[in-house]
Amino acid sequence: MKKDFSCCCPSLIPSRETACFYLLFVLIALYMLAGAAIFSSLERPAELQAHQLWETRLKDFSQEHNVSCEDLKSLLRHYEEARTAGIRTERGRALWDIPGAFYFVGTVVSTIGFGVTAPSTVTGKILLVFYGLLGCSAAILFFNLFLERVIKLLSLLIFWCQRWRKGPGRLDSRSSDTISNEEGNPSVYQVTLILFVAVLLVACGAASLYSVMEGWTYLESLYFCFVAFSTVGFGDFVSGQREHHADSQGYQVANCLMMLLGVCCTYSLFNAISVIIKQGLNWMLRTLAWMYSA
Rank of each mutant, 00 (worst) to 15 (best):
T117A: 07
T89W: 14
K125N: 10
V191Y: 00
L157V: 13
G167V: 00
A203S: 05
E47S: 09
R165I: 04
Y223I: 07
E55W: 04
T178N: 08
G106W: 06
N282D: 03
Y210S: 01
M259E: 14
A198W: 06
T266V: 09
E148G: 10
T18Y: 02
N144F: 12
E220C: 02
F146P: 00
S137W: 15
L260N: 11
F61Q: 06
A94G: 11
M258L: 08
R88C: 00
W96A: 02
T178K: 15
G169H: 12
L288V: 03
A207M: 01
I98C: 07
C256V: 13
L171Q: 08
V108H: 01
H65P: 13
L145P: 05
F104T: 03
T287I: 05
I87Q: 10
I277F: 10
C225G: 00
A29F: 05
C69T: 13
D60V: 14
E47A: 08
S110T: 15
C265T: 13
D172F: 09
V122E: 13
G115I: 02
T56L: 09
F5V: 06
S15F: 00
F102A: 14
A37C: 13
S41Q: 11
P10N: 02
T117R: 09
E17A: 13
Q279Y: 05
A118P: 03
S176A: 12
A19L: 14
P168N: 00
R242Y: 08
W290L: 12
L42P: 05
L128P: 03
L285N: 04
V67Q: 03
E47W: 06
S40P: 10
L12C: 14
D4A: 14
L141C: 08
L260E: 05
L154G: 01
E80G: 05
I158E: 05
A206F: 05
A34T: 14
R77V: 12
I38C: 13
L219Y: 06
P186H: 00
A228E: 14
Y31S: 14
R286Y: 08
C136G: 00
V129T: 03
R163Y: 09
T217Y: 09
V129S: 01
T107D: 07
L48N: 12
G100K: 02
G235V: 03
G169S: 15
T89Y: 12
S176M: 11
D71S: 05
G115Y: 01
F25Y: 15
F21E: 15
V197D: 07
V263R: 00
V105Q: 13
A85L: 09
S15G: 01
V108C: 00
D247E: 04
F234V: 06
L33T: 10
L222R: 08
L260Q: 13
S173T: 15
V191F: 01
G250P: 00
V108L: 02
W290A: 09
R170V: 13
N144E: 12
G124Y: 01
L95P: 14
F146Y: 03
A139I: 02
Q249P: 02
S180L: 15
G205Y: 06
A46L: 10
F237E: 02
L285G: 02
Y292R: 10
A254M: 07
Y223H: 04
A294T: 15
V232P: 01
N66F: 07
S211Y: 06
T18E: 04
R16H: 05
